[in-house]
């Protein structure tokens, strides 16, 4: 069966950016089902608005920005509608003994959490994070610094925070 152009495009988006969007959404929502919906909605938004990107880096940044906005909207929606947030355990928690890291990150305020995720997981610079989140770079740096300090206090471990 021949694949349509649209289908090929969606597959490419899912395979290339699906995991990154999913992880970002999970870092916000702590809920796998919600995070999957965010992935879907993000890709739908891309297909509907069909923006022009000079390179794939910009495309990923656009998707991450959209996913972050959708995730925040979902958090507000959940708070307004008093839905029970499913406190799902990360799959990783059973495989590795790193659940304390996740617990520590979850204690951070949302603004610091998203900066930590984009900086540590996606490897964005503070400038890129500022563009994605629509904030000043100085604010991002301050949030990152505060987040590190908070994690250091929470974890009380001898992590190397210089990176």
């Amino acid at each position: 069966m021949a694949l349509s152009v649209q289908e090929i495009r969606i597959r490419r988006l899912l395979n290339t950016y699906g995991d990154s969007i999913f992880r970002l959404a999970r870092s916000y929502l702590h809920n796998e089902a919600d995070a999957q919906e965010i992935v879907q909605d993000t890709i739908i938004q891309l297909l509907r608005y069909d923006p022009d990107f000079p390179d794939s880096g910009k495309e990923k940044a656009w998707l991450m920005k959209t996913a972050a906005n959708l995730s925040r909207n979902r958090i507000r929606f959940n708070q307004t509608h008093e839905t029970d947030e499913l406190q799902e355990q990360l799959a990783a928690e059973e495989k590795t003994d790193l659940s304390y890291v996740w617990d520590a990150v979850r204690q951070l305020p949302q603004k610091q959490r998203e900066v930590i995720h984009l900086f540590y997981q996606e490897g964005y610079s503070t400038k890129e994070i500022a563009e994605i989140l629509g904030r000043m770079e100085g604010t991002v740096r301050a949030d990152l610094s505060r987040a590190r300090a908070a994690l250091k206090t929470i974890l009380k471990e001898a992590y190397d925070f210089e990176e």
Partner: peptide
């Protein structure tokens, strides 16, 4: 480092092929 641990933790979070097909 915290960065490595966070990445290791997050790398375990991924969409399965079934989930992608459903999406």
């Amino acid at each position: 480092t915290l960065k490595n641990n966070y990445r290791k933790l997050m790398d375990e979070v991924s969409l399965s092929e079934d989930q992608k097909e459903q999406m």
